[in-house]
Design a protein around this nucleic acid. Structure first.
Lengths: 209, 209
DNA sequence: TAGATTGTTAATCGATTAACAATC
DNA sequence: TAGATTGTTAATCGATTAACAATC
C-alpha cells in the first residue's frame, strides 16, 4: 500500500462502505468473495470494485477472488483504523452530548478525552464520564493531552472562532457539524456533516412526488 | 421551473449550499450578485454556478447578474421549502433526542409531530413538548396525522424493521442515521447520514499526515 | 450606446464501465 | 489443465470548465 496522493474523493468516500460490508460478511463467517458477488450486495459494479481496490494494491487473487478478512484488514489500514484517536467535543449542547454518548465510536478506536463549552451552566457536567470544561481551558488541556480530532458541535455563529482556537492548539482534524464552511489552514482537514443541507436534499425529492 | 427529472445528484447536492450563502448575503443586505462574485465566496466556478442555475431556469439578467432575494426564493422553491413538512423521529436515544431538540429545523418548516421508540423506559417521556410513543402506535398515529418524513435514529440492527413499518404506513421519505443501507420500495426516498462513514473519511486523511 | 454578465454550446477533464490478457 | 476471476488498459459516459454570442 503506497502512500497515495492522487486517489479521488469519490473512491475515498466508498471505502467506509466496503469496510462496513466486509465487516458484515466477516460476521457471517464468509471467507472469500469475488468482485461480482460483492457487487451484488454492495451495489457498485464489479468493475468499479476492482478499480477502487487496485488504487491501493492487488488484494485479490486471480481465479479465487478476495479473502474477506484480509481485505477488511487492508481497508481498515487504509482508513487509518490501526491506531487510536484522541477526540474532543466542542459544544456540549444536544448534538455534542449525543455524540459524547455515542458508544459506537469507541469500537473504532476513538477515545473521547475532553468536552468544552462556553456556557457556565454546562461546565462541570459529566457526560459519559467526561467532564465539560470551560473553553478557556482548551489551550492548556491540548498542551498536555494530544488531541487528534475535534468535533465542532456549536452554533453556526460560534464555529469559526472555535476553528481558530483549535488551530492555535495545533489540532489538525475537525469534524464539523455547524452549518458553515470553515476557513482553515491548508494543513487542517475538515469533514463536514451539514445536516440541514442533507435534509434539504431530501425535501427536493419529496416535493417532486 | 419545469419538473426536472434529469438533474444530476451533483447539482442537487450543491443547491442547499447556494441557499445557505444566499441567505447570508440577504442578511447582509446584498441586493445583487454576479456569478463571478458568488464564485469567490462559495468556491464553485462562475461557470458551474451558471450551469447549475440554468438547469432550473434563467434566473439572472445579462449585464446585471442575479437578484439575491429572487434567487434565494427560487432555490427555496426548488428545494421544496415553500411548504411545511410533518416529521416523526423513530428511536428516542441520544441522537433522536438531540434531533428532537434541534430548533433550526423548525425555521425551515419541519414540524416534529411524533417520536416513537420500543424502549418502555422512554415511552411517555416528553422531549421538546412531544411525547415518546410506543412503536406499536405508529400505524394508528400515521393514519390520523399525515407524516411526510421519518428520521430513523435507531441502532443498526433495528433500522430495517423500522423502514418496513414506515412503508406500511405509506411514509415516503426517510432520513436515516443508522449505519446501514435500507432496502425500500422504489417510491420511497432515503437520505443517509452515515456518521461513521464520514468520520472514517476524516481518519483516512489524518492517517496520511 | 458601451460595458457587463448571462445563457448556452463546445471542449476538456475525470470517473465509471467494458473488455480482456494475465494468472491463480 | 481448464475454469474462474483478478488487474489493468481502453472505451464510454458524465460532469466541469472554457468560450462566446445574446442581451440587458
Amino acid at each position: 500500500m503506497a502512500s497515495n496522493q492522487n486517489i479521488s474523493m469519490a473512491v475515498i468516500r466508498r471505502l467506509p462502505k466496503y469496510h462496513r460490508y466486509l465487516r458484515e460478511l466477516l460476521d457471517k463467517d464468509v471467507k472469500r468473495i469475488s468482485s461480482k458477488e460483492l457487487s451484488e450486495i454492495i451495489g457498485f459494479t464489479a468493475s468499479q470494485i476492482r478499480q477502487d481496490l487496485n488504487n491501493f494494491g492487488g488484494f485479490g487473487q486471480q481465479g479465487y477472488g478476495y479473502n474477506v478478512e484480509d481485505l477488511y484488514n487492508e481497508i481498515g489500514k487504509i482508513l487509518g483504523l490501526t491506531k487510536n484517536y484522541n477526540t474532543i467535543i466542542v459544544g456540549a449542547g444536544n448534538l455534542g452530548q449525543a455524540l459524547a454518548n455515542y458508544a459506537s465510536f469507541g469500537r473504532f478506536g476513538f477515545n473521547l478525552v475532553g468536552i468544552f463549552d462556553i456556557n457556565p451552566k454546562l461546565i462541570g457536567l459529566k457526560i459519559n464520564n467526561v467532564e465539560v470544561r470551560d473553553m478557556d481551558e482548551l489551550k492548556a488541556f491540548a498542551s498536555e493531552t494530544p488531541v487528534d480530532i475535534a468535533y465542532i458541535c456549536t452554533s453556526r455563529s460560534g464555529a469559526q472562532d472555535v476553528a481558530d482556537a483549535l488551530m492555535e492548539c495545533k489540532i489538525k482534524a475537525v469534524w464539523n457539524f455547524a452549518p458553515v464552511d470553515l476557513k482553515v489552514d491548508d494543513d487542517v482537514i475538515v469533514e463536514n456533516v451539514h445536516l440541514i443541507d442533507n435534509l434539504l436534499t431530501l425535501t427536493y425529492f419529496v416535493k417532486e412526488q
